[in-house]
Design a protein around this nucleic acid. Sequence first.
DNA 1: AACAAGAGTTAGGCATGCCATAATCTCATC
DNA 2: GATGAGATTATGGCATGCCTAACTCTTGTT
Lengths: 225, 225
Amino acid sequence: MGIPTVERSRAVEDYVKAIHAIADDGGDRSVGTTALASHLGVTPASASGMVRKLATLGLASSSPYRGVTLTDDGEGLALSILRRHRLLETFLAQRLGIPWDRVHAEAEVLEHVLSVELEAAIANNLGNPDRDPHGAPIPRSDLTVEEQQTFPLDQLAEGDRVRFVRIPDERPEMLRWLAERGIAPGVEIELKRREPFGGPLTAAINGREHQLGVELAAAIRVEYL
Amino acid sequence: MGIPTVERSRAVEDYVKAIHAIADDGGDRSVGTTALASHLGVTPASASGMVRKLATLGLASSSPYRGVTLTDDGEGLALSILRRHRLLETFLAQRLGIPWDRVHAEAEVLEHVLSVELEAAIANNLGNPDRDPHGAPIPRSDLTVEEQQTFPLDQLAEGDRVRFVRIPDERPEMLRWLAERGIAPGVEIELKRREPFGGPLTAAINGREHQLGVELAAAIRVEYL
DNA sequence: AACAAGAGTTAGGCATGCCATAATCTCATC
DNA sequence: GATGAGATTATGGCATGCCTAACTCTTGTT
């Protein structure tokens, strides 16, 4: 679940934010201790300790010597902080006329303190925007982490390269069809062509091209690389 | 000075707030350790320790076994917190439609975190109000503590009972005049009558009535009892 | 004036939270 | 299988702020 029931301490939230930011940046899912440490201005030892704490809180999972990854809870927390941050920036600038160069610093503080009600009230006051004035997306609070990060295959544009994530498991016959062609979670997919008017999609998977019907394509959830 | 250059920790601000609240309440300037402690839900020992800290921070002065008093710095901090609190309550309710019973709790948190710029922006957005929607005064940020708490004698209404605070010391002849009549800082004054059109004021002081010219009355600063 | 009771204080500890240094360990790569 | 970068532990420090227990004031009563 993306709803953070977890304790909220400034440091914890900052670590989660940092992990999210670095992971997103490199496209890499796993974040190194040293990178994390230098991003936060602490020693690797400190980061290492904090990562252990994040793990006990259920926010991150770390195979030692192998880097950190946010769990779904952690990812949810990161997205919720990001949401608060962008909502705050937008609100401070648009409603209170705070200059844009100051807005970030203010949001940095308030994002850790904003209550759920206040967040909702601010979002509402702004008309529940999807994006901040810079065009950056504001994560939604009513979607699970997966829903925020994955998309139905049929919503892609030609040329998009993505990774297969999953199929809603109520569709075993689709799973079987895919399995027969070696299409399993993790494989990369490149959308080659989409026929107009709901026609089939052509996608390159494992070096071979496949035709996928719209219904199937709509069920397949993928994430961008 | 009322401008808090001091470090801002949640606990320190809460103690200062509490001392201010209790002192104001009883009309008493000096606050007992036990009252303070029970107001904050801690033991007297804890309060005692914290009071010592407030003293080293220059926010309070405590003669041991004799109660705590806020210094001008402390009073300034208390007023500035109160200002932020009331501004926030007003803003949350009027601009964000947060219900009144919620507003207090939100403000309780945000008041400790609001930057000077944001405070100014909010005040501005609300039209720099003097009072919150409940009619409670919002302390001003551009006045010294004394200016917030004392008033020129000539601004009082008939029947007001006040205490003499001071005379601007550039007026030694006034001081002398007052001294001859035993009117010194601390004595109580009750305004009996004011003649219309800038005529003299009649005030009971030390059990005797005196006539005070408007110029003199305007120079005398008093505080309400 | 003595004293009891209540208020206040100090001393000593504990818990939390977070960071640092130093030493050691792991893993990928040569 | 040696090596070096990266990661981890062990240990300790510092800051906050709280508590209990034992002691000391102050004050009102007798």
